[in-house]
Computed example of a mutant assay.
Amino acid sequence: MKVKHKIIKGLAVVAAAVFFVGINVTSSHATERQYGGDYSKYQPSLYNNTGKDSFGISQIGGSVNGYIYDQATYSSHMNQGKARGWHMHTYIWDQTGSNQYQTQAMLNYFLARIQAPYGSIVALDYEAGASWNIEANTDNILLGMRMIKQAGFTPMLYSYKPYLMAHVDVNRVLQEFPNSLWVAGYQNGLSVWPNYHYFPSMNGVALWQYSDYGGQQDMNVDLTGITNNGYTQNKQTAPKPAQPVKQPNPNQKAEVITRNSVWKDSMGDVWHSESGTFTSNTWLHLRWGAKPYSSTIAYVGPGTVIKYDAWSRHDGFVYLRQPRGNGQYGYVAVRDANTNEAYGTFKQ
């Protein structure tokens, strides 16, 4: 989103000339609009570009193919913005393509480190690394947005229109998260005010990044009031501690475990009975449900041995079911369902 991605942004500017159409706004100084910049390490100080800026969005860090990095300027940006009375929000560089495991690890790391209020924006910056599989990319994005919402924040998706159209099923995203798009499309010239003839016409745009001011500073206009979330509207409190998901009654016919039995659970996932042990070779999440976004029971490290009684292949992973006390079960993703990469060893 910043200077290091100028090549990508240059493509956005060229493509914008093809896709932009005007909208019916007669004044670029319309009082109902709110303005603000987004910031990374390339802008150590906040700027009031319009003289009326009221919000800022700072990069906390990101993931590049599973490598997670922090942005050292995040805390300083948050403190500067709070001192100015601005509504401060967060974005994360999301170069995980269709890999839900990487997105899950990224958000488990960053969501606990957000320094803005609950209810504020946490945006996924998805503009590089997409796979050829549009549905898998979209599944991955939706997983991330669900995790952001579950953590008590307002999820948004940032990119530029040609990239979204080529790699993401935007309609699926908007069906679940209406008006959640933050779209880049740069106007000509160095005006600090948006020229709406360059607006990237598409549904669901809540924030428009209308200029990079000659490659120096990104400027945004809030079209819906979403930057008030967490401040004057949509205030949230800390999420309640996760509760165990109620499991199907093991005495039900579909849950009777016999050798080589197969059944479908209430989520529509097919399970196969199999007794064995799994020894992890990396850090994994043991969860209350067999979904990437299910609540975590515990983190299990390399060398941990888990006894299991069933397995299922769905949502991009192979899951094992671990019997626990009081008729409960834990679930752990032990293999990438697409590449078949195992996260440990198995023994029956």
Rank of each mutant, 00 (worst) to 15 (best):
Y109M: 05
G97I: 12
G85F: 11
S75F: 03
T96A: 11
L46P: 05
Y67W: 09
P44D: 09
H77L: 11
A105P: 02
I92L: 12
Y109R: 09
T26L: 13
D38V: 12
S40M: 11
V25M: 11
V64P: 00
T96R: 02
P44G: 08
S54K: 09
I60V: 04
Y69C: 09
S45L: 14
S45Y: 13
Q102A: 14
S75A: 15
R113F: 01
V18G: 05
D38M: 12
E32H: 13
A112Y: 10
Y69I: 13
N24Y: 08
Q102D: 15
A83Y: 08
A112M: 09
T31R: 05
V64L: 13
E32I: 00
G37S: 12
S98H: 12
K82A: 03
H87R: 12
N79Q: 12
D70P: 04
I57G: 02
S63R: 08
G66F: 01
E32K: 14
A72T: 15
W86M: 05
N108P: 05
T96W: 05
A105D: 03
S58A: 14
M106D: 08
S75K: 12
G61W: 03
Q59H: 13
S45V: 05
Y47N: 06
A15G: 07
D38P: 14
A72I: 14
S63F: 01
I68N: 07
M78L: 12
T96V: 10
N79E: 14
G85A: 06
Q34N: 06
M78G: 03
Y67N: 15
L46E: 03
V18E: 02
Y42D: 04
G56N: 01
K82R: 14
Y91E: 12
I57F: 08
F20H: 14
G97D: 01
W93L: 05
Q102W: 14
G85W: 10
A72M: 10
G81I: 03
D38I: 11
I92R: 04
G61R: 04
G51Q: 07
Q59I: 04
R113T: 02
Y42E: 04
Q102G: 09
M88F: 00
G51P: 06
